[in-house]
Computed example of a mutant assay.
Amino acid sequence: MVTDQQHKPTESELEILQILWDKGNCTVREVHEILTLEKEAGYTTTLKLMQIMHEKGLVKRDTSAKTHIYTAIVNQQKTQEQLVTKLIDNAFNGSAARLVMQALGNHQSSKDEIEAIKEYLDKLEKQQ
C-alpha cells in the first residue's frame, strides 16, 4: 500500500479528501454534488480524479455494489501536518511564527478562534 508520505495530494485531490474526511464514505455523485456548490466541475472530471486518487493510494473503493463507494485512506491529521511543514519550510523559511502572523493578518478570526489560539499559546508557554 502507498503511504501518504509517498503521494502528497494535489489541490483538487485535497478538496475531495476534505469531503471524504467530513462525510466518510461517499459515491462519486455525492462528492461531485458537494464540489459543485463551491466551483464549477464536470462529473467525469470528479470521477477521473477519484480514480487517480485510488491508484495513488489516497482513497479506497468498495466495488461490491453497482455504485462504487469511496473512503479516504490517508489520515487527515498526518496529511495536514505534512502540508503545513512543507509550507513553513518553503514559503516562510522555516518560521512557524511568520506563517501564523501571516494567516492571522490575512483572515478574519472569530472571538472563539482567537480565544482558542490564546489558550493554545498559553499551553505551549507552560510546556517550555
Rank of each mutant, 00 (worst) to 15 (best):
Lys23Trp: 06
Val28Leu: 04
Ala103Asp: 00
Gln51His: 15
Glu40Val: 06
Thr79Leu: 09
Pro9Met: 09
Thr3Met: 06
Met53Gln: 07
Leu124Cys: 12
Lys8Met: 10
Glu33Ser: 12
Lys66Ala: 09
Gly24Gln: 03
Glu13His: 14
Gln127Ser: 11
Thr27Asn: 03
Asn75Pro: 02
Ala72Cys: 04
Lys66Val: 05
Thr45Gln: 08
Tyr120Gly: 01
Glu81Phe: 06
Arg29His: 11
Ala97Pro: 00
Glu33His: 08
Asp112Lys: 14
Gln108Leu: 00
Leu14Trp: 11
Met101Arg: 01
Gln51Cys: 08
Lys60Val: 07
Gly24Phe: 07
Met1Phe: 13
His7Ala: 04
Thr67Phe: 05
Glu113Asn: 05
Asp122Thr: 10
Lys111His: 07
Val28Ser: 04
Thr36Trp: 04
Ser95Cys: 11
Thr36Cys: 08
Lys126Gln: 13
Asp22Phe: 09
Leu35Asn: 01
Glu125Pro: 00
Ala97Asn: 11
Glu38His: 14
Lys111Met: 05
Gln102Cys: 01
Val100Ile: 15
Gln51Phe: 09
Ser110Asp: 00
Arg61Trp: 04
Ile73Gln: 08
Gln128Val: 03
Lys78His: 10
Thr79Ala: 07
Ile114Gln: 05
Glu115Gly: 02
Ser95Lys: 11
Leu14Tyr: 11
Gly24Val: 05
Ala72Gly: 04
Lys111Cys: 01
Ala91Asn: 11
Thr44His: 13
Ser12Ile: 09
Lys123Gly: 02
Cys26Val: 03
Leu121His: 01
Asp4Ser: 13
Thr44Val: 08
Leu104Trp: 04
Gln5Val: 12
Cys26Ser: 11
Glu11Lys: 14
Glu11Gln: 13
Lys118Trp: 04
His68Phe: 12
Glu40Phe: 12
Leu47Ala: 09
Asn75Trp: 07
Cys26Leu: 07
Ser12Arg: 14
Lys118Gly: 03
Thr71Lys: 13
Gln76Phe: 06
Leu58Thr: 06
Thr36Ala: 00
Ile114Phe: 05
Cys26Thr: 02
Asn90Val: 02
Thr79Asn: 11
Lys48Ala: 10
Glu33Ile: 01
Asn90Phe: 05
Lys86Leu: 08
Ser64Pro: 02
Ser95Ile: 06
Gln51Val: 13
Leu14Phe: 10
Thr3Glu: 06
Ile117Lys: 00
Gln82Ser: 09
Met53Asp: 02
Leu35Ser: 00
Met50His: 05
Gln18Gly: 02
Ile34Thr: 11
Gly42Gln: 11
Glu15Gly: 12
Glu11Leu: 11
Val59Lys: 03
Ser64Asp: 06
Gln82Met: 14
Lys66Arg: 15
Lys111Ile: 05
Leu49Val: 04
Phe92Ile: 00
Gln76Asp: 06
Met101Lys: 04
Ile16Val: 15
